[in-house]
Design a binder for these strands. Structure first.
Lengths: 190, 190
DNA sequence: ATACTATACGGAGGTTGCCTCCGGTTGCAA
DNA sequence: TTGCAACCGGAGGCAACCTCCGTATAGTAT
């Protein structure tokens, strides 16, 4: 994981290990049950006490944030890659579709976290800002190419993707996701 | 309220009264705290026991559904009114905007319920179907006038409105709602 | 090796909200 | 007035959350 980060007081080996084990268990739980995970189950699956879980992640949100850090990093990287791989509009579209895929996979909690504003300076907050920034570059590129309306902002698009995911979440039928996505894409073109 | 409906076995007077009082308390609570209401609080505010609440509304969902019945009826009526009052595209746009207003007011639970599929034959289910139907008429009218793409369905639009509302829900800044709405509208035009 | 201590562990238990169940109450028809 | 079906209310069992503190141990200093 990406917890090789420098810390003022380095963690003890056992603490570091537990931290990672908890994260693994969390990701597994989220992939299976979505955002409404039971913290005690996660602790048990990770083989640690509930107290240990709460010490590392005082808040449910902090736990989920940590679990999604990788996704934020990944999405940022994908944006960078797409910038050089595809034409402006195609790159933007591809990245937005990725946002939906990642969001849907994490049962929308991911999307919710990606769009949320976090306490300044957090690792995840920085990762999210970077991700948004990379997306903004894609957007601006398409706008400069004259293919996307200039009054659209990156947050609009992220929230729309997020909205599509959660609006379709409890629907057994996912077949309308693509049409909805197409509507949004058509709506941002010049 | 609209509980003057015929019942095979008419309710006793006290039961009918409690039913209505509970609904009033529920609407107040939802307007204030959104979907995450505390059922015991509602019962207390309504001046009834928790058991009484559960007898009338065995499920949290059923309670919320009942509380939103009025909105569904209202939205259906508005659709009918708009059909005769405005030009096809304008009418559709106005109605979609209403969907957002209603949804945002009810803290998005409303939108969630409106879009949800319910157990067949429920009063709210019928009301929702009627509302969707009325919206579909507006949409078809705009499509027949050649102003809206023919591959768009009414559920797409309802879900997109719903998505916009909840995606912006926790954002302190609601200023991006209109731009997002505009993107969608631009996206459905021919 | 040994001792020392800051760091970390774990789970018992208090709290809150959900929901069920049933003894007691009451509207209403006869 | 009486009888009873319909209804009321809240005690209590359960599930999940979160805190607190006595115990254990990794890492360091000697």
């Amino acid at each position: 994981m990406n917890e090789t980060v420098v810390r003022k007081v380095p963690r003890r080996a056992d603490a570091q290990h537990n931290y990672e084990v908890i994260l693994v268990a969390t990701r597994a739980a989220v992939a299976e049950h979505g955002g409404d995970i039971v913290l005690e189950d996660i602790a048990r699956n990770a083989g640690v006490g509930i107290g240990t879980l709460y010490r590392h992640f005082p808040t449910r949100l902090e736990l989920l944030e940590a679990a999604y850090l990788d996704e934020a990093l990944e999405l940022r990287k994908r944006a960078d890659d797409l910038t050089t791989a595809l034409a402006p509009l195609d790159a933007l579209i591809a990245w937005l579709r990725l946002q939906m895929v990642f969001g849907a996979h994490g049962r929308s909690m991911g999307a919710a976290i990606m769009n949320a504003k976090h306490t300044e300076g957090t690792e995840i907050q920085i990762a999210c800002v970077n991700m948004r920034e990379a997306g903004a570059v894609l957007l601006r590129r398409a706008q400069d190419a004259g293919e996307v309306r200039s009054d659209v902002e990156i947050v609009d698009l992220l929230r729309l993707m997020h909205g599509i995911v959660i609006a379709n979440e409890q629907a057994p039928d996912q077949s309308r996701v693509t049409p909805m996505f197409d509507v949004v894409i058509a709506g941002i073109r010049t």
